[in-house]
Design a protein around this nucleic acid. Sequence first.
DNA 1: GGGCATGTTCGATGATCATCAAACTTCGTG
DNA 2: CACGAAGTTTGATGATCATCGAACATGCCC
Lengths: 107, 107
Amino acid sequence: MGDTNQPELPASMPVAPVQDVLQALADPVRLEMVRRLAADDAPVRCSALYDDISKSTASHHFKVLREAGVTERIYVDGVLHQRLRRDELEEALPGVVSSVVSTLQPT
Amino acid sequence: MGDTNQPELPASMPVAPVQDVLQALADPVRLEMVRRLAADDAPVRCSALYDDISKSTASHHFKVLREAGVTERIYVDGVLHQRLRRDELEEALPGVVSSVVSTLQPT
DNA sequence: GGGCATGTTCGATGATCATCAAACTTCGTG
DNA sequence: CACGAAGTTTGATGATCATCGAACATGCCC
C-alpha cells in the first residue's frame, strides 16, 4: 500500500546517562566511528565507519553506541546507515561531541 | 630559607589525549570524584572524594585521573589534596567538564 | 527462487581493569 | 623517637569487555 518498502527499525533510545555515553565514547574504535560520523554530518554506511576489525566486532560497537543514544540506524535507499544524533547529544551534554570530535588524534 | 616545608610533588602531566580523558571519566567512582572536586572548585582532601571503597582502590583512581591530566596533587597545610584542573581541561576539551559534571546522576 | 552482499547474534577466548589486603612511605605529633 | 594518620605500591583475584568465527537474518538483483 503506502508502504515505502523501507524496513522497520525499532525507535531510537533516549540519550543514556552521562556515564554510559562516556563509556561508549571511551573506546578507540567507537570514537573513530563517531569522528567519521561527525565529519560527514549525514548518515553513513556502516562499512565506511571502520577498518581492520571484523563485521561482528563492528556490529557490537554499533550496538554500544546505539544503546547509549549516541547513534541511530536508518535506511537510505534500502541500505543501512548510522547517524550521529548531534542535536539530542548537544542538548544532553552540550559541547561534548564537538569537543571530542574536533580534537587531533594522537599517532 | 624560603622553604615552606611543603613536600615536593612531581610536576603535573599535560592533559592527555581525549581518548584517555574519556577513559578516565568513564568510571562511576572516578566520575563521582570529579563531581565532588567540581562542586567545591578548590582542592579537596583525598578522603572526602569517595565512600565505600578501600584506600588502595581510591589511590588507584586518583592515579588514573592524574595521569589523564584531569587532576593534580597539591599540599594544603601539609595535607594532600586533589585539585580539578578546570582551566587546562576547558582549553583541551571545551565544555566537557561542565557538561559531564552538571548532569543529574541517575539513581 | 537462487545467490550475493551486508549486518546481526551467539558462544568462546583473551585482555584489560576495578577491587582488595598487606606491606611500605611519609608526615605530623605527643 | 615512637606512634598514628593518610596515601601509595604491589600482587592477586574476579568481573567486564573487545575480539573473532560461524550461523543466521534480510534485502537486492539476475
